[in-house]
Design a protein around this nucleic acid. Structure first.
Lengths: 152, 152
DNA sequence: GGCGAACTGTTTGTGCACCAACTATTGGTA
DNA sequence: TACCAATAGTTGGTGCACAAACAGTTCGCC
């Protein structure tokens, strides 16, 4: 009979691929992000770059470390990503005079202007998914729970 | 007032980073998969490789295309991944005599034996997450919904 | 003032993930 | 039979994700 020590004892095959939450997460993330691709591609953005732009449209300037905290990317990922955004002309990276170590990331006019195009994206995604906003918010709530659980 | 055509009209800022479901999915997937890393690393597996092994422990042999359907990876991703698994000695890839195009992926004894170690992983993850199995199953159910929505 | 630890971001290496172009094989059909 | 289209997997290019090593700057502290 099930015991407290073995929460999986009621499950027939714990190694079954199609009931791994990690697999569901990986596939769901890729599937949903894939929906953004055709929308972002005309803007010249990848999905992680889009997330960085979202962060900057909210607050600016941001140091690389702050940006990394916001979008949950480590500096090794962010550093080349930001260079690509700078090459696109959406951001500038400028050294802080007071602390030459840190880099302030700011939007260019082009980067700021891009926000108008971006506003079309969330409704387009919701429409494409054809799920109720309530359902999406409920999923989101549960995602935050599992993120909290995984990172504590 | 809200209309049917604009399901997001009740939301203050549709571009707010921290309420993007795509962002939640990306972070959740990375966080959870990150929990597997220390468990898989001693086995010499990455997480996608682990998923491939799960598929093979269920059914074998599998052609590359079948494997791709199961683990939802395209052949361009799978091809080098399988070579690495073969280099590790966990699988073999053998040409089908009847159809020289297709490649049958089979487990080696070493690959089959690895399953015993793998059995420790799901309970370890559930314990580490410290979430109820019910809650995880509910999340999983919702993930399957969004996958279905995104891929139809 | 000078030394060492802490901090900020960069670089390098490995491995996914996706796409497009490619090779080889097979199967249908004229 | 000879060709053409479809199929199966490989390769190369770009970009993310992560880890480890690195370089420059700042700060505490003697």
């Amino acid at each position: 009979m099930p015991t407290q020590k073995d929460p999986l004892s009621g499950i027939e095959n714990p190694l079954a691929l199609d009931q791994q939450v990690c697999f569901g997460l990986a596939v769901a993330a890729r599937s949903v992000i894939g929906l953004y691709r055709p929308l972002l591609e005309p803007m010249g953005l990848t999905h992680p770059q889009y997330l960085v732009m979202l962060a900057l449209w909210e607050e600016e300037p941001l140091r690389v470390s702050e940006l990394g905290r916001k979008v949950q990317l480590d500096p090794g990922t962010l550093s080349p990503l930001l260079k690509r955004l700078e090459a696109q002309g959406y951001i500038r990276r400028e050294r802080n005079k007071l602390d030459e170590r840190s880099l302030a990331v700011v939007l260019t006019d082009r980067g700021r202007a891009l926000r108008d195009d971006a506003e079309k994206i969330p409704p387009a995604i919701v429409e494409r998914l054809d799920m109720s906003v309530d359902e999406l918010m409920e999923l989101h709530r549960r995602l935050l729970e599992v993120i909290a659980a995984a990172t504590r």
